[in-house]
Amino acid sequence: MSMTRAELQDAATKAFDGDLTPDAAHSWNLITDMGWLMMAVPEDQGGLGLGREAVGVIHQALGRTLVAGPAIAQMLVIDALSAAGGQDELLGRAMAGEIMSASLAEGLRAVPDADRASHVLRVEAGRISLLPVEGLALTARATWDKTRRLFDVDAGDAVGVVLAQGDAATALADRLSALRSVALAGDCLGGADAALAMTTDYLETRRQFDRPLALFQALKHRVADMKAALAAAQALFWARTEDSAADAVTMGAMKAHAASIYRLIAEEAIQLHGGIGLTMEHPCHLFLKRATLNAALGGDGDQWEEAAGRRALNA
Protein backbone atom coordinates (compact mmCIF):
# COMPACT_ATOMS: atom_id res chain seq x y z
CA MET A 1 0.00 0.00 0.00
CA SER A 2 1.24 3.45 -0.88
CA MET A 3 0.87 4.84 2.62
CA THR A 4 2.46 2.61 5.23
CA ARG A 5 0.48 1.23 8.12
CA ALA A 6 2.61 3.24 10.53
CA GLU A 7 1.98 6.51 8.67
CA LEU A 8 -1.71 5.89 8.59
CA GLN A 9 -1.75 4.91 12.25
CA ASP A 10 0.09 8.08 13.07
CA ALA A 11 -2.44 10.21 11.17
CA ALA A 12 -5.34 8.37 12.78
CA THR A 13 -3.96 8.82 16.27
CA LYS A 14 -3.42 12.52 15.67
CA ALA A 15 -6.98 12.94 14.45
CA PHE A 16 -8.42 11.24 17.52
CA ASP A 17 -5.91 12.23 20.15
CA GLY A 18 -7.04 10.18 23.08
CA ASP A 19 -10.09 12.00 24.46
CA LEU A 20 -12.76 9.35 24.85
CA THR A 21 -16.15 9.65 23.12
CA PRO A 22 -15.42 12.76 21.05
CA ASP A 23 -18.38 14.73 19.72
CA ALA A 24 -20.23 12.67 17.09
CA ALA A 25 -20.77 15.42 14.49
CA HIS A 26 -17.19 16.61 14.77
CA SER A 27 -15.93 13.03 14.48
CA TRP A 28 -17.99 12.40 11.37
CA ASN A 29 -16.56 15.51 9.72
CA LEU A 30 -13.04 14.40 10.57
CA ILE A 31 -13.67 10.91 9.23
CA THR A 32 -15.04 12.17 5.92
CA ASP A 33 -12.50 14.99 5.56
CA MET A 34 -9.63 12.56 5.97
CA GLY A 35 -11.05 10.26 3.34
CA TRP A 36 -11.33 7.35 5.71
CA LEU A 37 -14.61 6.16 4.24
CA MET A 38 -13.03 5.67 0.82
CA MET A 39 -9.89 3.89 2.02
CA ALA A 40 -10.71 0.59 0.37
CA VAL A 41 -12.31 2.00 -2.79
CA PRO A 42 -10.13 1.61 -5.89
CA GLU A 43 -8.44 4.76 -7.10
CA ASP A 44 -10.21 4.70 -10.47
CA GLN A 45 -13.49 5.05 -8.56
CA GLY A 46 -12.23 8.06 -6.65
CA GLY A 47 -11.07 6.16 -3.58
CA LEU A 48 -7.65 5.63 -2.03
CA GLY A 49 -7.24 1.97 -3.00
CA LEU A 50 -5.62 1.02 0.30
CA GLY A 51 -7.39 -2.24 1.06
CA ARG A 52 -8.45 -4.00 4.21
CA GLU A 53 -5.29 -3.29 6.17
CA ALA A 54 -6.07 0.44 5.99
CA VAL A 55 -9.65 -0.27 7.04
CA GLY A 56 -8.16 -2.06 10.04
CA VAL A 57 -6.08 0.96 11.01
CA ILE A 58 -9.08 3.30 10.81
CA HIS A 59 -11.36 1.19 12.92
CA GLN A 60 -8.72 0.54 15.55
CA ALA A 61 -8.40 4.30 15.88
CA LEU A 62 -12.17 4.77 16.12
CA GLY A 63 -12.43 1.97 18.66
CA ARG A 64 -9.60 3.33 20.77
CA THR A 65 -11.47 6.50 21.64
CA LEU A 66 -14.97 5.00 21.38
CA VAL A 67 -15.97 7.23 18.47
CA ALA A 68 -19.72 7.39 17.81
CA GLY A 69 -21.34 7.24 14.40
CA PRO A 70 -22.13 4.98 11.47
CA ALA A 71 -18.59 4.59 10.05
CA ILE A 72 -18.69 0.79 9.83
CA ALA A 73 -22.12 0.71 8.20
CA GLN A 74 -21.26 3.53 5.81
CA MET A 75 -18.12 1.72 4.75
CA LEU A 76 -20.19 -1.37 3.94
CA VAL A 77 -22.50 0.69 1.72
CA ILE A 78 -19.53 2.25 -0.01
CA ASP A 79 -17.95 -1.14 -0.57
CA ALA A 80 -21.20 -2.53 -1.98
CA LEU A 81 -21.59 0.42 -4.35
CA SER A 82 -17.98 0.16 -5.38
CA ALA A 83 -18.16 -3.59 -6.00
CA ALA A 84 -21.46 -3.36 -7.88
CA GLY A 85 -20.06 -0.79 -10.27
CA GLY A 86 -22.00 1.71 -12.33
CA GLN A 87 -23.18 3.59 -9.23
CA ASP A 88 -20.76 6.48 -9.38
CA GLU A 89 -23.28 9.10 -8.37
CA LEU A 90 -24.41 7.31 -5.20
CA LEU A 91 -20.85 6.22 -4.48
CA GLY A 92 -19.60 9.79 -4.72
CA ARG A 93 -22.28 11.04 -2.36
CA ALA A 94 -21.54 8.28 0.15
CA MET A 95 -17.81 8.89 0.06
CA ALA A 96 -18.46 12.61 0.61
CA GLY A 97 -20.20 11.81 3.87
CA GLU A 98 -23.89 11.66 3.05
CA ILE A 99 -24.98 9.05 5.55
CA MET A 100 -26.01 5.72 4.07
CA SER A 101 -26.31 2.95 6.59
CA ALA A 102 -26.45 -0.80 6.72
CA SER A 103 -27.27 -3.52 9.19
CA LEU A 104 -24.47 -4.63 11.48
CA ALA A 105 -26.43 -7.81 12.16
CA GLU A 106 -28.92 -9.66 9.97
CA GLY A 107 -31.88 -8.46 7.92
CA LEU A 108 -32.47 -4.80 8.67
CA ARG A 109 -31.78 -4.98 12.40
CA ALA A 110 -29.14 -2.96 14.19
CA VAL A 111 -28.80 -0.24 11.54
CA PRO A 112 -26.67 2.62 12.95
CA ASP A 113 -28.02 6.18 12.65
CA ALA A 114 -30.79 5.14 10.26
CA ASP A 115 -32.73 8.30 11.18
CA ARG A 116 -29.96 10.45 9.71
CA ALA A 117 -29.37 8.27 6.69
CA SER A 118 -30.59 8.89 3.16
CA HIS A 119 -30.30 5.21 2.23
CA VAL A 120 -30.02 1.84 3.82
CA LEU A 121 -28.40 -1.29 2.39
CA ARG A 122 -30.57 -4.38 2.23
CA VAL A 123 -28.83 -7.75 2.09
CA GLU A 124 -31.17 -10.66 1.33
CA ALA A 125 -30.65 -14.12 -0.07
CA GLY A 126 -29.88 -13.62 -3.74
CA ARG A 127 -30.31 -9.85 -3.75
CA ILE A 128 -28.51 -6.79 -2.41
CA SER A 129 -30.12 -3.41 -2.84
CA LEU A 130 -29.94 0.15 -1.64
CA LEU A 131 -33.22 1.59 -0.37
CA PRO A 132 -34.07 5.25 0.16
CA VAL A 133 -34.90 5.60 3.85
CA GLU A 134 -37.75 8.02 3.22
CA GLY A 135 -41.02 6.23 3.86
CA LEU A 136 -39.49 3.29 5.74
CA ALA A 137 -40.57 2.56 9.32
CA LEU A 138 -37.70 3.09 11.77
CA THR A 139 -37.68 1.87 15.35
CA ALA A 140 -35.00 3.32 17.61
CA ARG A 141 -33.45 0.63 19.83
CA ALA A 142 -31.83 2.12 22.91
CA THR A 143 -28.65 0.17 23.56
CA TRP A 144 -26.65 -0.08 26.75
CA ASP A 145 -23.74 1.17 24.68
CA LYS A 146 -24.48 4.88 24.31
CA THR A 147 -21.71 5.33 21.75
CA ARG A 148 -23.90 3.72 19.12
CA ARG A 149 -27.44 4.53 17.94
CA LEU A 150 -29.15 1.49 16.44
CA PHE A 151 -32.44 1.21 14.60
CA ASP A 152 -34.58 -1.59 13.31
CA VAL A 153 -35.86 -0.81 9.83
CA ASP A 154 -39.08 -2.20 8.41
CA ALA A 155 -38.69 -1.91 4.65
CA GLY A 156 -41.70 -4.03 3.66
CA ASP A 157 -41.23 -5.06 0.05
CA ALA A 158 -39.31 -1.95 -1.01
CA VAL A 159 -36.69 -2.74 -3.65
CA GLY A 160 -34.76 0.46 -4.41
CA VAL A 161 -31.57 0.20 -6.42
CA VAL A 162 -30.54 -3.40 -6.96
CA LEU A 163 -26.76 -3.73 -6.67
CA ALA A 164 -26.34 -7.48 -7.09
CA GLN A 165 -28.48 -10.54 -7.67
CA GLY A 166 -28.05 -14.32 -7.63
CA ASP A 167 -24.50 -15.64 -7.26
CA ALA A 168 -23.10 -12.13 -7.50
CA ALA A 169 -25.22 -11.15 -4.50
CA THR A 170 -24.01 -14.17 -2.52
CA ALA A 171 -20.40 -13.29 -3.29
CA LEU A 172 -20.93 -9.65 -2.40
CA ALA A 173 -22.67 -10.60 0.84
CA ASP A 174 -19.64 -12.70 1.82
CA ARG A 175 -17.32 -9.87 0.96
CA LEU A 176 -19.38 -7.41 3.03
CA SER A 177 -19.48 -9.87 5.92
CA ALA A 178 -15.69 -10.19 5.86
CA LEU A 179 -15.26 -6.43 5.74
CA ARG A 180 -17.70 -5.94 8.60
CA SER A 181 -15.72 -8.44 10.64
CA VAL A 182 -12.48 -6.59 9.92
CA ALA A 183 -14.02 -3.29 11.01
CA LEU A 184 -15.60 -4.73 14.15
CA ALA A 185 -12.41 -6.59 15.06
CA GLY A 186 -10.41 -3.41 14.56
CA ASP A 187 -12.82 -1.57 16.80
CA CYS A 188 -12.42 -4.31 19.41
CA LEU A 189 -8.64 -4.25 19.38
CA GLY A 190 -8.44 -0.46 19.50
CA GLY A 191 -10.78 -0.41 22.48
CA ALA A 192 -8.98 -3.26 24.19
CA ASP A 193 -5.66 -1.45 23.80
CA ALA A 194 -7.09 1.71 25.34
CA ALA A 195 -8.76 -0.13 28.21
CA LEU A 196 -5.53 -1.97 28.98
CA ALA A 197 -3.49 1.24 28.99
CA MET A 198 -6.08 2.90 31.24
CA THR A 199 -5.87 -0.04 33.63
CA THR A 200 -2.08 -0.08 33.88
CA ASP A 201 -2.10 3.67 34.49
CA TYR A 202 -4.64 3.25 37.23
CA LEU A 203 -2.74 0.45 38.95
CA GLU A 204 0.38 2.60 38.97
CA THR A 205 -1.48 5.55 40.47
CA ARG A 206 -3.86 3.99 42.95
CA ARG A 207 -2.29 3.25 46.33
CA GLN A 208 -3.54 0.81 48.95
CA PHE A 209 -1.63 -0.80 51.81
CA ASP A 210 0.97 2.01 51.40
CA ARG A 211 2.03 1.02 47.92
CA PRO A 212 0.81 1.30 44.33
CA LEU A 213 -1.48 -1.55 43.28
CA ALA A 214 0.95 -2.16 40.43
CA LEU A 215 3.40 -3.65 42.93
CA PHE A 216 1.08 -6.57 43.68
CA GLN A 217 2.14 -9.56 41.65
CA ALA A 218 -1.36 -11.02 41.65
CA LEU A 219 -2.53 -7.95 39.72
CA LYS A 220 0.55 -7.63 37.54
CA HIS A 221 0.14 -11.15 36.27
CA ARG A 222 -3.42 -10.48 35.22
CA VAL A 223 -2.31 -7.41 33.31
CA ALA A 224 0.47 -9.43 31.67
CA ASP A 225 -2.07 -12.02 30.53
CA MET A 226 -4.22 -9.24 29.08
CA LYS A 227 -1.21 -7.84 27.24
CA ALA A 228 -0.13 -11.21 25.86
CA ALA A 229 -3.65 -12.05 24.69
CA LEU A 230 -3.99 -8.65 23.05
CA ALA A 231 -0.61 -8.87 21.31
CA ALA A 232 -1.50 -12.25 19.83
CA ALA A 233 -4.93 -11.02 18.72
CA GLN A 234 -3.33 -7.96 17.10
CA ALA A 235 -0.83 -10.13 15.26
CA LEU A 236 -3.66 -12.34 14.01
CA PHE A 237 -5.58 -9.24 12.95
CA TRP A 238 -2.76 -7.88 10.79
CA ALA A 239 -1.93 -11.29 9.37
CA ARG A 240 -5.50 -11.77 8.20
CA THR A 241 -6.14 -8.24 6.97
CA GLU A 242 -3.03 -8.59 4.79
CA ASP A 243 -4.25 -11.94 3.46
CA SER A 244 -6.28 -11.27 0.33
CA ALA A 245 -7.62 -14.84 0.40
CA ALA A 246 -9.22 -14.46 3.84
CA ASP A 247 -12.98 -14.86 3.41
CA ALA A 248 -16.08 -14.36 5.56
CA VAL A 249 -15.45 -17.39 7.82
CA THR A 250 -11.77 -16.59 8.33
CA MET A 251 -12.52 -12.97 9.14
CA GLY A 252 -15.56 -13.91 11.24
CA ALA A 253 -13.44 -16.22 13.39
CA MET A 254 -10.86 -13.48 13.71
CA LYS A 255 -13.56 -11.02 14.76
CA ALA A 256 -14.88 -13.53 17.32
CA HIS A 257 -11.37 -13.88 18.71
CA ALA A 258 -10.86 -10.11 18.87
CA ALA A 259 -14.24 -9.61 20.54
CA SER A 260 -13.44 -12.23 23.18
CA ILE A 261 -10.16 -10.46 23.97
CA TYR A 262 -11.93 -7.09 24.14
CA ARG A 263 -14.44 -8.54 26.57
CA LEU A 264 -11.73 -10.13 28.67
CA ILE A 265 -9.81 -6.86 28.92
CA ALA A 266 -12.90 -4.71 29.51
CA GLU A 267 -14.10 -7.05 32.26
CA GLU A 268 -10.69 -7.15 33.89
CA ALA A 269 -10.46 -3.36 33.59
CA ILE A 270 -13.58 -2.95 35.69
CA GLN A 271 -12.48 -5.51 38.24
CA LEU A 272 -9.00 -4.01 38.58
CA HIS A 273 -10.40 -0.49 38.92
CA GLY A 274 -12.46 -1.64 41.88
CA GLY A 275 -15.37 0.54 43.04
CA ILE A 276 -14.66 3.45 40.72
CA GLY A 277 -14.98 1.07 37.77
CA LEU A 278 -18.61 0.50 38.69
CA THR A 279 -19.57 4.15 38.37
CA MET A 280 -21.00 6.00 35.38
CA GLU A 281 -18.49 8.81 35.78
CA HIS A 282 -15.56 6.51 35.08
CA PRO A 283 -15.17 5.37 31.46
CA CYS A 284 -14.56 1.68 32.23
CA HIS A 285 -18.17 0.77 31.57
CA LEU A 286 -18.08 2.36 28.12
CA PHE A 287 -15.52 -0.21 27.01
CA LEU A 288 -17.44 -3.10 28.54
CA LYS A 289 -20.67 -2.07 26.82
CA ARG A 290 -19.05 -1.55 23.44
CA ALA A 291 -17.19 -4.86 23.82
CA THR A 292 -20.33 -6.87 24.48
CA LEU A 293 -22.20 -5.10 21.68
CA ASN A 294 -19.33 -5.77 19.25
CA ALA A 295 -19.39 -9.42 20.29
CA ALA A 296 -23.08 -9.65 19.37
CA LEU A 297 -22.88 -7.67 16.12
CA GLY A 298 -21.73 -9.18 12.84
CA GLY A 299 -22.40 -12.76 13.91
CA ASP A 300 -21.47 -13.91 17.39
CA GLY A 301 -18.68 -16.17 18.58
CA ASP A 302 -20.88 -19.26 18.59
CA GLN A 303 -21.66 -18.81 14.92
CA TRP A 304 -18.16 -18.04 13.70
CA GLU A 305 -16.33 -20.49 15.90
CA GLU A 306 -18.58 -23.30 14.76
CA ALA A 307 -18.05 -22.31 11.14
CA ALA A 308 -14.30 -22.12 11.67
CA GLY A 309 -14.32 -25.49 13.44
CA ARG A 310 -16.22 -27.06 10.56
CA ARG A 311 -13.73 -25.63 8.13
CA ALA A 312 -10.74 -26.83 10.15
CA LEU A 313 -12.36 -30.25 10.30
CA ASN A 314 -12.57 -30.41 6.53
CA ALA A 315 -9.16 -28.87 5.92
Partner: peptide
Amino acid sequence: LRDFGRLAS
Protein backbone atom coordinates in the same frame (compact mmCIF):
# COMPACT_ATOMS: atom_id res chain seq x y z
CA LEU B 1 -16.79 -27.66 16.56
CA ARG B 2 -16.80 -24.31 18.38
CA ASP B 3 -14.00 -25.36 20.66
CA PHE B 4 -12.05 -26.59 17.67
CA GLY B 5 -12.69 -23.37 15.75
CA ARG B 6 -11.71 -21.26 18.74
CA LEU B 7 -8.52 -23.28 19.17
CA ALA B 8 -7.67 -22.92 15.48
CA SER B 9 -7.91 -19.12 15.81
